[in-house]
Design a protein around this nucleic acid. Sequence first.
DNA 1: AATGAATGAGGGTTCATTCAT
DNA 2: CATGAATGAACCCTCATTCAT
Lengths: 201, 201, 201, 201
Amino acid sequence: MTSSDDRLQHLVGTATAIFAERGFRATSMRDLSRASGMSLAGIYHYVRSKHELLFLIQDQCFTEVHAGAVAALEGVTDPEERVRAFIRHHLVFFTGHMDKMKVLSHEDDELEGTMRQQVRERKRAYVDLLWSLLHQVDHRPVNPVVAGYTLFGMMNWIYTWYNPAGTIRPEQLADDVARLFLYGYLPSTRPAVELAASPGG
Amino acid sequence: MTSSDDRLQHLVGTATAIFAERGFRATSMRDLSRASGMSLAGIYHYVRSKHELLFLIQDQCFTEVHAGAVAALEGVTDPEERVRAFIRHHLVFFTGHMDKMKVLSHEDDELEGTMRQQVRERKRAYVDLLWSLLHQVDHRPVNPVVAGYTLFGMMNWIYTWYNPAGTIRPEQLADDVARLFLYGYLPSTRPAVELAASPGG
Amino acid sequence: MTSSDDRLQHLVGTATAIFAERGFRATSMRDLSRASGMSLAGIYHYVRSKHELLFLIQDQCFTEVHAGAVAALEGVTDPEERVRAFIRHHLVFFTGHMDKMKVLSHEDDELEGTMRQQVRERKRAYVDLLWSLLHQVDHRPVNPVVAGYTLFGMMNWIYTWYNPAGTIRPEQLADDVARLFLYGYLPSTRPAVELAASPGG
Amino acid sequence: MTSSDDRLQHLVGTATAIFAERGFRATSMRDLSRASGMSLAGIYHYVRSKHELLFLIQDQCFTEVHAGAVAALEGVTDPEERVRAFIRHHLVFFTGHMDKMKVLSHEDDELEGTMRQQVRERKRAYVDLLWSLLHQVDHRPVNPVVAGYTLFGMMNWIYTWYNPAGTIRPEQLADDVARLFLYGYLPSTRPAVELAASPGG
DNA sequence: AATGAATGAGGGTTCATTCAT
DNA sequence: CATGAATGAACCCTCATTCAT
């Protein structure tokens, strides 16, 4: 027996998959009807509009990652470790939900009015969390705004290339990204070498 | 007197702006007609379809950045410097053409058939160029695929947040990103510390 | 209360009339909308495309005439009489459905793919029926293919000139055509033979 | 060097072929432009409209067959022989010009106004010619209108099935049709009369 | 709760034709 | 003569949504 709420979640899940695959605009309510097995009119019992479906996806997802990140940070005290934990959680979460990630990133601009606002707020809360973590770490003098967005870029861009069924494991991906963000692509960096070399060799 | 080619370029330019603003699918040919000042049917003298317009934008743009990158690398021999030059060119170019960047990134999946293929090839050539640069630099043992895509993520994500009219200058942005990618967010000392600490660790 | 099927048949009927009057290509879906009293979009609830409407007309009609012909032949054993029965049925049927006849004849080449194929098959079954009747009658040594097509020409051409509201009754038309096909325009023929055989010639 | 008139005739010829193949309505001026090698606007130097092109085809063609029929009848005095001559000419002419035949038959209703009227008159003259021939032959008591249209049906229907490149020679086709029309499909009868008449013939 | 039926608005594209050059 | 460029009107069809049942 499926409850009304189950049916809504089934719908939201189907929508996530199809929006991710085809794009929000390119998906018709008929597509959703077909894919979800619900009648076209039936969908409107659970949702006021196509846009509300998108809203639900994005709202739920931001709420979920945010809560997940908070949980992942619990007990971690070292600032650098906390950044690493955030990165690891973000990537493990989204490599497991590539479709949500795509819908979040790609359909970022489709909502309007109240829905838009609420999603924006949820998103801001999540972004602000990373922001605060970055501030608490002793860092290279780069623009912190740039650093934050850059890190999100590193992580979120994976929706364009990462294949969860491929050889790269999510944890490994997370480690690589964390290492790249924290220490950079070059080996132990030049300054470090200089420092290490100066006193005792 | 405007030549036929000028008119086409005007059209492509208008389309780039509107596609970037509203998205390819959300833009109607009537929108383009209005914005370009050409009649709806007149557009079809220069372009076989709405998709061809997208194709022209993407094809031209990839051709252009690729040529620009090659030019920017000319005379630069140090491997690390070459990576930096690539990053700087990419970011200076795209901060000056945010709309193109958005259309390239956001409408990456709209084309089909031959057009898709050709754009894919142009893109590959450009990506491969960065790939080769990364290989020639002595680097931290991270998955090179991950490193390349991650760098593109850092750079391309700017279409979601960077405001060319704001306070961050393109060159400064480029420097920050390059530094972040090459040396990481943490201050240079850190690896040295690890090294120093290892004997006792 | 009109059932969904009634509405479809109403639509098919309207389409038959207008396609016959104006031609398939010259008829717009808006014309059909106007004439049927259904909204433009509403039409697409019953039919996938304008071509499907044409398909339905042709498919139903060939199915109908074929069944009618088979019924008309029932119990008729004399080969010559069977040919006559076929002719009579064909002409009585189509003089009563001039619009269908026109759409069948005039729009014979508009369909493509599966629809075309299916209509072709239905048509072939009907034509083959006449073919077999002609073979079973003792006949003048003319090319049988020519004879068959010629007879269809005699009958089908009426869509270009026959007026059901005029003075010529369908049955009379059928008799005339049957007599022309079987005995020819010139007198003599069988009576002539009888005459020749008679004593006083 | 091609004269202006040659160019027009080239255009009319091309149009005939394409109208026959695709239908008048389904043929665009661009199709004609492509097929004729003339520019789209250039066509309008020779012709006021697409409809005028159809008019020229039909007008010329009816004029031509009519003149041909008159010539074919010259010197033939026997009424029955005259009917046969008409049939033979009609079929030999049109098997050699299948495309014209199709355009004449299939696009019979496209013209309007003066053009329509003039074509109608030319057609009437030609039809009346057959009419008069049929009246002068001693015939079976069928409705003469029916007989005339029926004969045209026998002959004109060939545009739906006859293949000039096939095995049936035009002359043979003409003989078969003439025999069918004059003597009918059933055997002998008639020859018996001829036999009976021969002693004194 | 669920759905078949219905629709106004709008989508991309093609058309016959005109006109400046 | 010839043509590239241009366009208003119209094409078939799809859309998100509503409503009677």
